[in-house]
Design a protein around this nucleic acid. Structure first.
Lengths: 350, 350
DNA sequence: CCGCCCGATGTCATCGATCACTGTAGCGCC
DNA sequence: GGCGCTACAGTGATCGATGACATCGGGCGG
C-alpha cells in the first residue's frame, strides 16, 4: 500500500460543502491584512492591543479555525505525534494509549495511531511509513519486543522516536518499567513469607519484559540460596497460566508461584482451585501488572503494579524533549514498580 | 484551548532536516513535468505506459512519498478519520479502537484519536473540534452515553458521524449491540435452568446500555410470570459487583444473578465465595461482554459475548457509506450478541 | 489534403497558511 | 531639520500538491 492508487483511495467525495472561513475573511471583517491576523494567531508582539481585540472578535464572530494542512505545508510542522500500537487487548497498552493522548494534547499536539498486527520488523516499518505520510513530528512505539525497537533505529535518524516497553538497540530512547526489580520484589516477598523457594510461570521468551522478570526472579532466588525451579515460558494468557498451573498444582512441593502477569495468575488460581489447593493457605500466588480486576480475583491478587498511565506521560515528555533537541544521546528511563499486598500470598506453613 | 496560541503550541522546532523529495524532483529525474507525476500518482488514464513506468521508477529511486498536507490543502480531503474515544480501560472500547484502525487502513484512511475524560457534551464538542482542526472526513464516536451522541447531532450536518454504543438522537447513525436481546438471552437461560427468578446487578443508570439490559431482563421475567426483584444500578466495576453481591449473597432466596458486565460478575463471584455460597451449585451467575479472561474466572463465567471487533468494522463501513453519500437518512445497525455457556450457571436445585 | 478530434503532456493558478521583506508614522536626539 | 530607531501593518513569495486549460502531434473522415 506504499505508492499511488494501489489501494482504493477513499471515497469519491460528495456535494461541495460551504467553504470554511479563512484568514482573509477574518482580515476583511477586522479591517486588517491577513498577515496581521496571522500575527494575532501566533502571538507576535508587534500588534496593537486594540487591533488584536478587533481581530479576535472577528475570529469569534466567524467561528474561525486555522487550517492545519496549510500551516503544516509551510511550517513543516504538523503538530501531531504518531503512536505505533500493538493490536492487543492486553490491559497495559490500552491504558497507555489514553495516557499518551492526554499528555500529547496538554502539550498542544494531536495524535494519530497506526496499529500493527504482528510484532515484526516489516509491520512496524509499514506503520511508521503511514505515520510519516501524515508528517508526524515524532513517534511513540508501544514496543514490547526488540524487533519493534530495532526497526525504529532505521527511522530514528530522521524522526524523533521513543519506545515504550522493552529496550532494544541503544540508539532509540526508551521508557520502561524495571521488570527485574519488580520480579525481585515479588520473589523477595514470597521468600520473606518463609517459602523455601518460588516457582515462576513466565511470559513468552521473545519478550524482554518476560525475560527480565525471569532474571529478577532467578537472581533473587540465587542470592537467597534457594533452589531455582525450571521455567517453561509460554504466553501471557490466562489459558497458559491455567495449563501450567495444573502441573504445578499436582506437585505438593510447590508452595509459592510468581506469575509473569495477572492474567497468567488468573489461570493459575483456577488451576489451584480445581486441584483443591487453597490460596494462600497451601500455595501463595503473586502476579504482575496490577490490572484493576486483580483486586477481585479469588482470592484478591498480590501483584506488582506498573503505572501505565505514568509510562505514557513520561514517554511523551521524553519524545517532546527529543523533538526539541535532536542529536542528544538517547536517554533511557526506568520506572520502579510497586508491590501491592493482597490476600493471595501468605506465610508458608511450617 | 480553542483559539490561537492560547496553549503552549508545541516546541520551537529544531535543526533543519534535509528537505524531503517532492514531486518536482521525481519529475526532473523522469524527464517529465510534475503534473505527469501527479497523474501517475492518481491513476489518470492519459499517460503512456512507458512514461508511467519511468515515473514509477523515479519515485522508487528517490523513495518519494507524497505530501499529505499539500494534497489535503488543495483537495480538501485529508484521507483521515477521527475517533472520539472514552478514556477508560474497559475491555470493549480498547478492542474496538484497534478494529476501527484496522478497517480504516484497509479502506485507505488514516486514523487520529481524541479522547475525552468525561462523557459530557462540552468534552465531546472539544474533542470533535480537535478532530475538525485536523480536517478529518468523518468521525466515529465511541459513545456509550446519550450526551455524546447528542453532541454529535450538532456536528453531523457538516461532518459525517457515526456513534458506536448507545443510541441517542435519531439523526446520528449508530452501530450497537442489541443489549435487550442479550439480556433476554441470559435471563431466559437462567429461567430455563429452573430458577424461580433472576436477580440483576445493573450498570450505571445513565448508560443506555445498562438500561437496555435491565429492560431485556425485566421483560423476560415478566413474560415468564416471574417475580421481578428490585435493581440498584451502580457502576461497571468489580468493586460495585462485589458490594452488591455481598447483599445478594446474604439472601438465601437468591439463586440466579445476571450481571450487567463481566467485571461486575467477577466481584459477585468473590462475594458469593466469601459468603460460602457455591457457584453454580447454590447460585448461578451470568455476565455480559465476553471478555477473554472470563473463561478463567472461578468458575468460568457463562456470559453474553459482544463482538467488539465486528462492531468496530461495521462502524467504519457505515461511516464510509455516509461519507460517500451525505443526506441519506441515518441508519441504525443492531448486532446480535451470543450466549457463551460455561460453568457459572447451572440447574436450580429443587 | 484539409480540418477536426483525441491522446499525451506541459503551463499556470490555486488551496490557506507563514515568512521575509517593505513601508509608514511617531518619537528622540544631535 | 534630518537621521535613525521602534512599533505597527501590509505585500508578495512560498510550501507541494491538484485542477483547469493550453499545446502539440498524429490519425481519420470527407
Amino acid at each position: 500500500m506504499a505508492r499511488g492508487g494501489s489501494a482504493s483511495q477513499a471515497g469519491t467525495g460528495s456535494v461541495s460543502r460551504p467553504r470554511a472561513t479563512v484568514m482573509r475573511d477574518v482580515a476583511r471583517l477586522a479591517g486588517v491584512s491577513h498577515q496581521t491576523v496571522s500575527r494575532v494567531l501566533n502571538n507576535h508582539p508587534n500588534v496593537r492591543q486594540e487591533t488584536r481585540d478587533r481581530v479576535v472578535q472577528a475570529m469569534e464572530a466567524l467561528n474561525y479555525r486555522r487550517n492545519l494542512a496549510a500551516r503544516t505545508l509551510v511550517t513543516r510542522r504538523s503538530g501531531t505525534l504518531g503512536i505505533v500500537g500493538f493490536e492487543s487487548t492486553l490491559f497495559g497498552p490500552a491504558s497507555m494509549l489514553y495516557a499518551i493522548e492526554d499528555a500529547a494534547r496538554a502539550a498542544g499536539y494531536f495524535v494519530t495511531v497506526a496499529t500493527v498486527r504482528r510484532l515484526d520488523r516489516q509491520s512496524v516499518l509499514d506503520a511508521v511509513d503511514r505515520l510519516a505520510q501524515q508528517s508526524v513530528e515524532g513517534i511513540i512505539a508501544i514496543s514490547p519486543k526488540p524487533a519493534v525497537t530495532n526497526a525504529l533505529v532505521q527511522v530514528a535518524s530522521v524522526l524523533a522516536c521513543v519506545g515504550v516497553g522493552a529496550a532494544g538497540d541503544d540508539a532509540v530512547p526508551t521508557v520502561r518499567v524495571d521488570n527485574r526489580a519488580g520480579a525481585a520484589l515479588a520473589t523477595r516477598h514470597l521468600l520473606d513469607l518463609g517459602h523455601a523457594t518460588v516457582h515462576h510461570i513466565a511470559g513468552p521468551p521473545d519478550w524482554p519484559e518476560a525475560v527480565e522478570r525471569v532474571d529478577g526472579w532467578r537472581e533473587t532466588l540465587y542470592a537467597a540460596g534457594a533452589v531455582v525451579p525450571p521455567v517453561h515460558p509460554r504466553e501471557w494468557t490466562a489459558r497458559s497460566g491455567y495449563e501450567q498451573g495444573q502441573k504445578l498444582a499436582a506437585d505438593p512441593a510447590v508452595t509459592a508461584i510468581f506469575c509473569a502477569n495477572d492474567q497468567i495468575a488468573l489461570g493459575v488460581l483456577r488451576a489451584l482451585h480445581e486441584a483443591g489447593r487453597r490460596v494462600p493457605d497451601d500455595v501463595s500466588v503473586v502476579g504482575f501488572d496490577g490490572m484493576p480486576d486483580s483486586e477481585y480475583f479469588l482470592p484478591p491478587l498480590t501483584t506488582v503494579r506498573q503505572d501505565f498511565a505514568e509510562l505514557g506521560r513520561r514517554s511523551i515528555d521524553m519524545l517532546l524533549r527529543k523533538i526539541d533537541s535532536t542529536g542528544q544521546p538517547a536517554e533511557h528511563m526506568l520506572l520502579e514498580p510497586e508491590l501491592i499486598l493482597r490476600d493471595s500470598a501468605g506465610a508458608a506453613r511450617s
